[in-house]
Nucleic acid binder design. Structure first.
Lengths: 316, 316
DNA sequence: TTGTAGGCGTTATCAC
DNA sequence: GTGATAACGCCTACAA
């Protein structure tokens, strides 16, 4: 692609005039503008945004870092967010990272490029990032917290989610409700456990929390606890155990109810019948977009919603 | 973040010297280098790659465009590819697109930014892109073809995949093998149908191809054709119908064998037991990386491989 | 060993 | 209405 100077020469005008034409600025005659736009079209000229961004000392790119694996939820989220940011002339670009070193290196590259902001899913909880990074690049941490004070965290109200799951299952008559979750100490995980425990206690029920490791261990847990319902940390986990449970001939939901969390587009498509707590993705992405644009989050928290699929039912 | 000029002033040297220090170039004393590097560390200085790229007239960013929905396969692919490209100092950045307009706009932005290359999953087959684009930006189309001559297509040998699926199922004793696929006329889809038909014919079996629309239509097809095995275009489709089939009490694989295609990391994790033709992802991504770096593809085509899960078995 | 000058593509500003 | 110039941050080439 040619440069503005080349185009100017081709049109027999100056760079300044080309600029006026390309950006619809005043101070140019209609005839000249049309001529320049026609030539631009012909040679496929478009100003390189990267140059503009150097002068502004700030890029219009927003970088996002998501896990290389197990990223269905985040992709659904980013797809929405991308549209919101596009409305503000910000381009969202994603990169999947494999480990913590990769994570930090990528973030440093984002900072060096003077990206407008970065949205990150930290590979582990309470990550500590070099203070250089947090100084030069606004970072929003999704779902997990970072040690650095300067890094804002965005998460839905997961305590509420835990409570809501219990309340929903209890209303269906369940008493032995197992919460199946992950070993990672991420904020979202801990909060849901917390909410689950609090609500179980309020209802006078016994808390049963288990970490999913493998099929064998899982069924040992099931045989020990004999739950009538399992509240899974997310849909990914719910789908995993749903398969295993059905494979053993256990009837879902008649013998065992299963409830997940997320219900984002991909999970809906993958398993439309799965009962799930719908993540407030709309509100969540709006908050994220707002943060990118204004630097602030006015988190009027919006709640999860129960999606009644066919993997939960009234306990007889 | 400060600029090289600011850092130079802080160190009491010139920009040129800062440059020598930052890039480990000769012509600088060890003492000066250490001093500059220390200050750079302290102020978090790193040269902005975007500036360098303007001078080179070519960015080190490689843009990738993938569908906003149903992108599990592509995410798995891109995660691998990212690592391969990182080894060549190229940064892969993804963006999910929602429709064709979004697709074209994004590609134009990539071109304007003088990206090194673009890897795209076209939203539809035989797309026609403005010739400006194809002139200024090397584009590699994944799985689907574009009308433009200048756009290279990268795809695995899907005809071979179709044949292999049939052969595998026939070896298990299946005679009534249904091929379930999509309505889209993408190359990958058409080629697998083609391979399926060819191999069925060779074995003297009757071809049964059906497009998946909804659950109801699907079971009408099953009842009409009475297949003992279903070869699904991909794992996504296989998982969808697996759920529906089991829900109706049909035993898999005893009464009905199901075979998918892809077997990428996410599908493996989501459904480890699913029998599938493993997509030659390693080879595929190596080809893509090679194209990005050299502009050429030496496609020593590597084949799909059968993964024998628990959703296929010998037909009694 | 170090400093200086020029240029990359774009835009803002001022002069004509 | 249009052209010239400076500036953004960096790097190469050359001068000291």
């Amino acid at each position: 692609m040619i440069s503005s100077l080349q185009l100017a020469k081709l049109c027999g005008v100056s760079q300044g005039t080309v600029d006026r034409a390309m950006h619809g600025r005043p101070g140019i005659s209609e005839a000249t503008r049309r001529k320049i736009l026609a030539m631009a079209e012909r040679y496929g000229y478009r100003p390189n945004p990267a140059v503009r961004e150097i002068m502004d000392r700030r890029s219009h790119l927003v970088g996002a870092i998501i896990p290389a694996l197990n990223n269905i939820f985040f992709m659904d989220m980013m797809s929405r967010l991308k549209e919101l940011l596009a409305a503000h002339q910000k381009m969202l670009l994603l990169t999947p990272v494999h480990d913590q070193e990769d994570f930090t290196r990528t973030l440093e590259e984002f900072a060096a490029r003077k990206m407008h902001a970065a949205l990150v899913v930290p590979p582990e909880e309470n990550l500590v990032l070099p203070s250089n990074l947090t100084k030069s690049l606004p970072i929003l941490s999704l779902l997990s917290k970072c040690k650095n004070k300067a890094i804002t965290t965005l998460a839905a109200d997961d305590i509420q989610a835990g409570r809501m799951a219990v309340q929903y299952l209890a209303n269906l008559g369940h008493r032995r409700i197992l919460h199946l979750t992950y070993a990672r100490k991420a904020k979202g995980i801990m909060d849901r456990i917390c909410g689950y425990r609090a609500q179980m206690k309020e209802l006078g029920l016994e808390s049963l929390v288990a970490v999913y490791r493998d099929e064998k261990t899982f069924f040992e847990t099931v045989n020990r606890y004999r739950p009538s319902a399992i509240f899974c940390h997310n849909d990914w986990l719910a789908i995993t155990i749903l398969r295993q449970v059905q494979h053993r001939g256990i009837k879902v939901p008649e013998e065992l109810s299963i409830l997940g969390v997320d219900h984002t587009p991909t999970f809906q498509a993958l398993y439309p019948d799965l009962s799930s707590l719908e993540y407030p993705l709309k509100h969540f992405t709006e908050c994220a977009a707002q943060w990118v644009i204004t630097g602030k989050i006015h988190a009027v928290s919006e709640a999860f919603r129960v999606f009644e699929g066919k993997t939960t039912c009234r306990q007889k």
